[in-house]
Design a protein around this nucleic acid. Structure first.
Length: 803
DNA sequence: TGAAGTTTTTTATAGACAGCATGTC
DNA sequence: CTATAAAAAACTTCA
């Protein structure tokens, strides 16, 4: 199908696409258009990665906008949100505007309401639905990218429920679901009342194969010699082989350590194939990486990068991740070894993809479990850049002939697994049931069940009554914790109930008519059931707060109980441990030996912890408690200005993990603050302070200073050491002192200006000797020395409790 | 006896969304 | 119940 044949797009859109070099639609795209993508028809497109799924979405959204509507594009990752934003912002040249909203992107409701296309993560959309954003009801088109993630145990239910709610909110709305090729795209299409485009067509050839011995055997029967020389590993041979043709490669492994180890070894391969110019650019890139964070992980990464290789996993900071991704796309980096982060994330194609490890440690399976076919296909789909590579190659590694055969059967010839809803899992249900009640989507038990019936879970579930019984358990839990109130309807049974639920009544009792059998007991039962369906559900004020804050109700319950139990003002550590033991905090596991170490810490500081510790004899629960204490201690270290490197070293985590923990704690403590206010706790201020300390990573005495723009944890400490204790001091302090503390004139001027000083200019000011003004604390150390001293004294990792 | 080299045992294991109100070194 | 790499420990070798 030719671009000219498209109708219903905004004027200028066709020219825009032609400007991008698009003349003709790919077959799946044409098929989507024929199925009504540009006419507002529902559509499920199950096509491989990089086969132009975004174009299908774009055509649907643009035609919807042209008809005067508004479109929403749901992505699974924040990184994808910014990627799509860049892409869609180009539409502004013909007058279609784009806005993004994710947890950390700035966005206000009125601002979004003016945009034609909005990009958001599924959680953010869920939150918007809960908080009743007005513009949601103006949507005429919703695109859900990577919809197969409904299968994900943690985040799938959110997407599923969100889609169901959006559909209930806007009955005529177009739904376009983009999926990887999965086993049951037809079921998803059924659920969404959508047409189905299901194909494995790809714009460039993808050859899949298995490397064994010295040969690479492809699925089309062809073979390529790739000899393994000397003691090198298979992946090294494969990387070298394709690099000599000028192609880069992507190696998927199953652990962070393996990713780092492989990158180190592959650096020896890649460093032989880079030019002098590239070497210089790589050195710059390595410096950028070192600048971002001075931890061991960064240093290792920088060392690899200098040789043209890199590793990629969630322990990297987001800056480092995008530096690596960009450099790889620019062909500067020749090879990346990565954990599966990269397969799901932003687009980073390579000529050759090597799936080295196809098994992964899975505690629930009791050991190593094979990866899903879907997952391996997602990785393999990263092979080949349309228009740039002649073809893509995806290679699995086998160590024996048998394994080679197994890999062909298991992954290359195999179809991906079907997508199964995970909504019935209790943690998911408890969150979404509360949200559904709080946002007024359901006001009776029957209404709730009716809503749940519209989910994929219900359409896939064969086990009758399962959803209902789990729902009842969840309702009990929510009522027990004071999040909802339930009220039985008046005994008369068939009365119409309260006025506001009348709207639901007509559809809520459809099953009853057939029950007028001769046996009164059956009729009684039916009546009882009908009565139960009319039970009213209402969120309490606390329940509304929990739902609005986007907390797991269980987290909220834990925090509320913890605060209620506190007789004295809680310490920072107490609060950090409290939020760390909620299910919303991603767990930090205890390593061997650490149970003892943290057991000791526990006895030392038991009094600070909120609520009752589980008995030591309940091993599992006690261990969880200690694990939370470990996380809490990490946060306390951070809030006591411990160096980043000391922390990453002590807890054996990457810089990205530290940021992640701090972010989550900040969010949870913010929520805890609202909860404290809600229950009239007297510790609201303590919570706020603990949150502020985590946010900035500083001690209590620096909180005022860090509120000045341009002053972070390090500068604040140095200023404080120099006797400048609060923003007001900055306005009167001797400029020489300020300059010597802050280094750099521009920084100093900028900070003084932010502090509201009238004459921030540093012209002609000489730095004063630092020890001139240390009088206040009697401590003449510069911040540098103090920081250095701290690092040194922290070197003994074995005793955590002694500072 | 002790440094250096080799084999065996032990150990550990992926990912990352959200509130709210603005900005690190 | 499954794997694998790296680190640590145990053991061997040789001057």
């Amino acid at each position: 199908m030719n671009l000219e044949e498209l109708t219903g797009l905004p004027p200028g859109a066709t020219d825009h696409f032609r400007g991008e070099g698009i003349e003709e639609l790919y077959p799946p795209q044409a098929e989507a258009v024929e199925a009504g993508a540009t006419d507002g028809e529902n559509l499920v497109a199950a096509v491989p990665t990089a086969s132009g799924k975004t174009m299908i979405a774009a055509l649907s959204m643009l035609s919807a906008v042209q008809r005067g509507g508004k479109a929403l594009y749901i992505v699974p990752l924040r990184a994808l949100a910014s990627e799509k934003k860049e892409e869609f912002e180009a539409y502004e040249e013909f007058g279609v505007t784009t806005g993004v909203t994710t947890g950390n992107y700035e966005s206000t409701d009125d601002w979004l309401a003016t945009k034609d296309i909005i990009v958001a993560t599924s959680e953010k959309v869920d939150s918007l639905v809960r908080n009743g954003a007005d513009w949601l009801s103006e949507l005429t088109c919703v695109v859900s990218d990577e919809v197969h993630l409904i299968d994900d145990r943690n985040r799938g239910p959110t997407l599923e429920v969100t889609l169901a709610k959006l559909r209930q909110l806007n009955p005529g709305m177009q739904v376009v679901a983009l999926s990887a090729t999965v086993g049951n795209a037809d079921e998803i299409a059924d659920w969404l009342d959508a047409a189905l485009v299901d194909t494995d067509w790809r714009p460039i050839d993808l050859q899949m194969g298995v490397h064994y011995g010295n040969a690479l055997n492809f699925d089309d029967g062809s073979t390529r010699e790739v000899p393994v020389e000397g003691s090198e590993k298979q992946e090294a041979a494969l990387v070298r082989d394709i690099l000599q043709e000028g192609g880069s490669s992507l190696v998927f492994v199953n652990s962070r350590r393996n990713a780092e180890g492989a990158a180190k070894r592959l650096g020896q391969v890649s460093s032989r194939e880079i030019t002098e110019d590239e070497r210089a650019e790589l050195a710059d890139l390595a410096d950028d990486i070192r600048d971002d964070s001075d931890t061991e992980t960064s240093a290792d990464l920088a060392d690899c990068v200098e040789r043209g290789a890199a590793f990629h996993h969630a322990g990297l900071s987001s800056t480092q991740r995008s530096l690596v991704e960009d450099a790889f796309r620019d062909r500067l980096l020749k090879v990346i070894s990565a954990t599966p982060t990269l397969a799901a994330g932003v687009n980073t194609p390579a000529r050759r993809v090597i799936v080295r490890d196809w098994r992964r440690f899975d505690p629930s399976a009791g050991g190593m479990a094979p990866l899903d076919v879907l997952e391996v296909h997602q990785m393999m789909g990263r092979a080949g850049r349309p228009g740039l590579d002649p073809y893509g190659e995806a290679v699995l590694l086998a160590k024996s002939h048998d394994e080679s055969e197994e890999l062909f059967d298991r992954y290359i010839w195999a179809d991906p697994e079907p997508v199964r809803s995970k909504l019935a899992a209790e943690p998911a249900l408890r969150t979404h049931v509360l949200a559904t009640i709080a946002s007024g989507f359901a006001r009776t038990r029957g209404g709730l069940l009716e809503f749940l019936e519209a989910t994929l879970y219900a359409s896939q579930s064969s086990e009758a009554g399962r959803l209902e019984s789990v729902t009842d358990d969840v309702l009990d839990y929510l009522e027990r914790n004071d999040f909802i109130e339930r009220e039985a309807p008046r005994a008369s049974g068939r009365s119409s109930g309260s006025p506001r639920e009348r709207e639901r009544d007509s559809s809520g009792d459809e099953a009853d008519g057939s029950n007028d059998g001769p046996f009164t007991s059956a009729a009684d039962l039916a009546e009882q059931q009908a009565a139960k369906r009319e039970e009213t559900l209402e969120a309490t004020s606390l329940g509304h707060t929990v739902s609005r804050l986007y907390l797991d109700p269980m987290s909220a319950a834990e925090i509320v109980h913890g605060l209620e139990r506190a007789d004295e003002r809680p310490t920072a550590l107490g609060l950090y441990q409290l939020v760390s033991r909620t299910p919303d905090m991603y767990e930090l596991y205890l390593r061997s030996g650490e149970d003892e170490q943290f057991g000791e810490l526990f006895y030392e500081r038991e009094a600070e912890l909120l609520g009752d510790a589980p008995s030591e004899y309940e091993e599992d629960r006690f261990e969880d408690w200690l694990a939370a204490l470990k996380t809490g201690k990490l946060l306390e270290d951070w809030a006591e200005e411990t160096e980043e490197e000391t922390i990453t070293d002590r807890y054996k985590i990457g810089p990205g993990d530290l940021r992640g923990k701090v972010d989550t704690a900040e969010w949870l403590l913010g929520a805890a603050e609202s909860l404290a206010a809600e229950i009239d706790s007297e510790w609201t201020v303590a919570v706020r302070e603990a949150r502020a300390r985590v946010e900035h990573g500083v001690g209590e005495e620096l909180l005022e200073l860090v509120s000045v723009g341009g002053v972070g944890r390090k500068r604040a400490r140095r200023l404080h050491d120099a006797g400048i204790e609060e923003p007001a001091d900055l306005r009167t302090a001797d400029k020489g002192v300020v300059l010597s503390v802050l280094k750099g004139e521009k920084t100093a001027e900028n900070i003084l200006e932010n502090a509201g000083r009238e004459d921030p200019s540093m012209d002609g000011v000489e730095p004063a000797g630092i020890d001139v003004d240390g009088a206040d604390t009697g401590d003449s150390n510069s911040g540098d020395k103090a920081a250095a001293a701290q690092t040194e004294s922290d070197d003994s990792q074995s005793s955590l409790g002694d500072f």
